[in-house]
Structures are given as C-alpha cells and as structure tokens.
C-alpha cells in the first residue's frame, strides 16, 4: 500500500491574518514496506505532513492518495483510512484513558466494530508484540513507567492492524536505555510484520541505525530525501538548517579529508568502528 503526495499544500487559518503555510507543494511517494525516518525541527511541517497520511488534516490544495484513492473525496471513509494508517502521537498521556491496559488497547479495534473475540485476540497480540507481559494487562495505564506507557500506546494502534505505522517522536523524554529499547522494538515490529514504518525524530543518530530512507523537512518543504548515506553527504546543508549528521559520520568524513584511506560515509557506530580499526591496522602493518 503506497501513500502519494501530489503537490500538497496545507495552510492553517487560510484567508485570515493568522494564515500560515505548514506544507508547501510537497511531492512524496511512500512505498509498501519501507522504513522511513522523517526528520525536521519543530515547526518544519513534519507534524502536519503525517496528519495528512491518515486524514486528520486534508490538503488545502493538491492531493493525497492512499492505496490509489484520493482521501479528500467526499465518500472516502476516514475510519477505514485510520485503520490502515496508524498514527501514534508523541505523548501517550494524550490517549490513555481506560482503567486497564487491555481495555485501552481494545479501544481502537472496538471503534472498527470488530467481533469481541477478534478484539480480544488482536489486543493480546499487540501487547505481546510490544513486550508488555500478562502481569501488566490489568494494571492501570496511568501507573506504568514512561517507557511502558509508550509501548501500550503503540499497542493501541497496532491492534487496529494498520498497514502503515507512523510514530511521532516515540522516544521523547525517555532515558538512553529506554530510547534504545523503543527504537529496537519498532525495528523488530517492522522486520516481523513487514508493515511500512515512518519514524518522526529530531535525531539523525537515532534513525541512522534503522531506516531505509530519510526525509528531511524544513520550512514547510521536503528539502532532502534518500538513503541515510546519501542524505548525510549533505552535512553542510543539514547544518545550515540546524540539523547535524551523526558524530561518527563527521569523524570518518574529516579523517578521509585529512588523507586517511577510509570510507567517508560510515553512519553507525559499528560500521565506523570497523573502518577505523581496519585503517589503524593497515597503518601499523597488523594483519586484520
């Protein structure tokens, strides 16, 4: 299932003094099964962009096609769209409301009008997929830790069995270990289920390890897109809009510029480590 943005522009409060263009002529194709990192600052338009994917917002001009259908069509079912494109917002506190974890996860499937048995099955499966054990099923979602809340919120959307899963800064406010756990979890879900995942983040380092493609937004437009390695070659341009490449990429590039025979575009810690070790051993004449 693909999502296509065709010359999409979105304006908030159009025609008033408060008018603000949040998306400016965006063209984008998101293919089935991709793992995408969407990067940009607060106010760059990434939040507006993802809300167009599940019809929470509609374009002021241009068209969004999901599965080949124009989502602005009058008789296009928003409910069906939202079951296909799941969106998890940044703060789980904004969606958790039922007295128990299980009930909260069932909210989505219930809204889809599924049979009770199916609802139960899906919610258990979703909770299992995010690593929430049976012992927490009947706990109150408000008493969970930050990381657990985040997992339950993700399960709440997964239980609708979406074909596309969008996560808006799922690691905000988590500590380093919590952050790695959630990112690892998302990557696992992508591998296991093969659904399209769009990960919204501020951090290049977070997404570099996992995604197939990075989309960079700035000032309401898509300014760069491509595989991480390709995007990171535009270090200057990224810095110009206040974003940075991972530290390891910076290091390998600088060393390559200084005459080391090193591949200049390492993007993960492991990759850079291997490259640097190889270069060091070569210089020292140590057999690898």
């Amino acid at each position: 299932m693909s999502i296509i943005f065709d010359h999409v522009t979105h304006k908030y409060s159009p025609g008033t003094t408060m008018e603000k263009t949040a998306l400016n002529d965006v063209n984008l194709v998101i293919n089935d099964g991709e793992f995408i990192g969407l990067i940009g600052h607060t106010g760059s338009g990434k939040s507006t962009l993802i809300q167009h994917m599940n019809g929470l917002l509609l374009p002021t001009s241009g068209t969004v096609y999901v599965d080949g259908e124009d989502i602005s069509e009058k008789d296009y079912s928003k409910k069906m769209l939202r079951s296909k494109v799941g969106l998890v917002f940044q703060y789980p506190e904004h969606q958790l409301f039922e007295p128990t974890v299980v009930k909260d996860v069932q909210f989505g499937p219930r809204n889809l009008g599924l049979k009770p048995l199916e609802i139960e099955y899906r919610s258990f499966e979703a909770l299992k997929n995010v690593g929430i054990g049976d012992d927490l099923f009947d706990a109150s979602p408000f008493e969970l830790s930050g990381g657990q809340k985040r997992r339950v919120a993700i399960a709440g959307v997964l239980a609708m069995k979406p074909k596309v899963l969008i996560l808006d800064e799922p690691t905000a406010g988590l500590d380093p270990a919590g952050r790695d756990e959630i990112l690892g979890l998302i990557s696992d879900i992508h591998k296991k289920t093969g659904i399209t995942v769009i990960l919204v983040s501020h951090s290049m380092e977070d997404v570099a390890n996992y995604v197939d493609r990075i989309i960079v937004m700035n000032a309401a437009s898509v300014v760069l897109e491509g595989p991480p390695k390709a995007v990171f070659t535009y270090a200057k341009e990224l810095e110009g809009i206040g974003l940075s490449v991972p530290q390891v990429t910076q290091i390998t590039r600088d060393l390559a510029n200084k005459g080391f025979e090193i591949s200049p575009d390492c993007i993960t810690l492991e990759e850079a480590g291997e490259e640097l070790l190889r270069v060091y051993r070569q210089r020292k004449g140590i057999p690898g």
Partner: peptide
C-alpha cells in the same frame, strides 16, 4: 545511561 557516540567509538 550512555555516552556521546564519539566516546563510545
């Protein structure tokens, strides 16, 4: 906790 990427490297 963790350390900056460069420190880990």
């Amino acid at each position: 906790l963790d350390v900056p990427q460069v420190t880990a490297l």
